[in-house]
Write a protein that binds this DNA or RNA. Structure first.
Lengths: 148, 148
DNA sequence: TGGGATAACATGGGATTTTATGGTAGTCAA
DNA sequence: TTGACTACCATAAAATCCCATGTTATCCCA
């Protein structure tokens, strides 16, 4: 599972260290890493190949001409299988760098089954937005289910 | 699996480099590459021979005398098994070049089980269309499905 | 509990390999 | 013999690999 938040530097080659805990999670699952454009936010989403594979399989089950199928295919096109170097770094593709307005710093945000990579300023925007909602409306009602 | 988007040049002999990751995918599957006219868009679709076979089988399950079956057969007739040169390039047949309005640049768009080859301007159209749908209707529902 | 030793991590830089692409020579058929 | 097609060579640019280093975190023993 991907948890916790951390800040890492992006160098001139668009390399960035993926937080060690995220890497260990992927290693334990023996899963390659996929990065793609978030469909909800101006940030990058990271997840496992298996999870991405589920989206692909879903496309074939949809009406091939539907909007949903179309959007999913566009999402695949903006997805990249990413390899680590020996030090646990990855290169962020140009397309994703500009989509998420990344330059020299990245904020990693674990959200369970996947994680986000934000630019510091977009992250702050989003953080403030959610704080505001929390103050105005109070915490969301959460109903926790038992395991299994 | 075919993922990611990239832009390559088409030379005067209609040669173009297939992105290395797409080539490696085909090699791993030990599958020949098939190029054919997309049934939905003014672009070329590339896929494996095995998947092409599945398209053909699907046509056979239609009413053989229907207009749909005839139309699909016409489209499939312009399918080509493509060979790579030693550098990973292919020659795009004239019929497909003009069908997709290709001239000097090609956009390769991986969509999972197959990939598209677009002219840059058509690609931009499609991309803008997807952003519009995303803004108006939000992300596809099945994104929210849980594991298993 | 403190503080030094050790390991893990993040990051910079340079060497090496891969990739994309232009070009040329050879082959076959009309 | 010409034109189209194929196979292969050459090169620049880009991606990748791997070593070096400083910094932070962890461990262990006094």
């Amino acid at each position: 599972m991907f948890l916790s938040t951390s800040h890492n530097k992006i160098d001139l080659k668009c390399r960035v260290s993926i937080p060690a805990s995220f890497r260990m999670n992927l290693e334990k699952l023996k899963e390659p890493l996929i990065l793609f454009k978030s469909l909800q936010f101006p940030c990058i989403e990271g997840t496992t190949l298996t999870r991405m594979q589920r989206y692909i399989n879903a496309i074939d089950e949809l009406d091939a001409l539907s909007d949903d199928a179309f959007l999913l295919r566009m999402m695949m096109a903006d997805s990249f299988e990413i390899k680590f170097d020996i030090n646990g770094r990855v290169v962020i593709p140009d397309i994703l760098m500009s989509f998420a307005s990344l330059t020299s710093k990245a904020v990693f945000m674990g959200i369970g089954e996947s994680f986000y990579i934000w630019s510091p300023s977009e992250y702050e925007n989003q953080y403030n937005k959610s704080q505001k909602i929390l103050n105005e409306k109070g915490p969301p009602k959460l109903i926790l289910k038992k395991n299994e």
